[in-house]
Design a protein around this nucleic acid. Structure first.
Lengths: 215, 215
DNA sequence: GTCTATAACTAGATAGAC
DNA sequence: GTCTATCTAGTTATAGAC
């Protein structure tokens, strides 16, 4: 994750500096938005002047492009592995949700950028792949849900399209409040979240013995 | 809501023009974000030049301020009415969710601005009330959930704080895909959403078969 | 690899004519 | 109520010195 991709590096690491700058830019893009982050902001964060950034990158767009491309390649690689395991709809949904919360944990900035800036960035031709990735998301989720309805794992009256949106949004929107250093791990949150989505928040009468007193 | 506040209107309505301009600005703020929307964009949308906007408003910030203030006053007024009815946790939750989806329907731009831009705007002193409104939201939702856990309406093992975030986010994030002209009304969506949150998407063995139609 | 200097352009806001 | 004209400041990006 840090020493790949350089061409003929002399040793101290021009490409690690590159990765360092990308990480700083990513954090700022995530916090303030792509358009609101200036190249001077990024340079200042790195302790250099804005002109010096152009020794490493073509443009501000290139930075966002590089950040998003590598993140999405990795994420969808993992999704494809999960689907290939053919665990059945419920287990697949659980695994995909868990992976997504892990991404919120391990690639917080990238998820935030993808969530918040994709709509703006996709208008530029070089970011056309963002629309493809969104379509891929849609296909992934709706086929899991539709299969679950077919096999009886999920309720027969589910509106698959609407349910897809709710699940997708709730998972990713966690990036707005999730703090990697917080008391709850990504796994804890995924578990709690799956509890709500699968079984609801209403108390059950006669099943799970979780309630305490009056009904 | 449209003919208040003008000083000595000559008849054709300087304040309706004002409302018109605010609506245009609101749509742009919602679509592109506050910072990315230029006063020239707004003026162009209105068919005038940027300088002319300053006859109606002090600044770009004033426009966002006015939009958010009136919307939030109305929304929280409705929330307070619901709470005052003392319907019990489950019915209160249903009413608050329904009201929120109605807001997504009736005040789409305002909800989007509040969702997407509050974090940025709140840094300016004049938008300090946004932080207060967020705290009010938190109080509203967590007391409904906590009471529900206490009375046994909701699962005893709920993490109230986490559940609050999930519900809050899922409701508001709908603003990103909800189209007022779409086939599903805000009420349809609120129903489907409440079905998921209250009872989950997993099929039940031997209990309530479904909520409304098919069996 | 970073800095200085600057070009080319975009932004919010103002003043006064019409 | 809108336009013309303009100011000031900020923004991306470039070129060449060190």
């Amino acid at each position: 994750m840090s020493s790949t991709k350089q061409t003929a590096d002399s040793g101290s690491g021009s490409s690690s500096r590159r990765a360092e700058l990308l990480a700083l830019a990513g954090t700022l893009f995530a916090e303030r938005g792509f358009k609101s982050t200036t190249v001077r902001d990024i340079a200042e964060e790195a302790g250099i002047l804005s002109g010096s950034l152009y020794h490493h990158f073509d443009s501000k767009e290139s930075m966002a492009d590089e950040i998003l491309r590598s993140f999405l390649d990795e994420l969808f690689g993992t999704y494809r592995e999960i689907v290939a395991r053919e665990l059945g709809p419920r287990k697949t949904l659980e695994a995909v949700v868990a992976t997504s919360f892990e991404a919120v944990h391990n690639h917080h900035d990238e998820v935030a950028i993808f969530q918040n800036e994709a709509k703006y960035l996709v208008q530029f031709p070089r970011f056309a792949y963002l629309a493809e990735r969104n379509a891929e998301f849609h296909e992934l989720w709706t086929s899991i849900l539709a299969e679950g309805v077919r096999t009886g794992a999920f309720r027969a009256d589910l509106d698959v399209e609407l349910t897809y949106r709710f699940i997708r949004d709730t998972v990713w929107v966690a990036v707005h409040w999730y703090k990697p250093a917080g008391s709850l791990s990504a796994e804890d949150i995924a578990d709690e979240y799956l509890g709500i989505v699968l079984d609801g928040i209403a108390a059950r009468r006669g099943r799970r013995p979780v309630r305490k007193s009056a009904g």
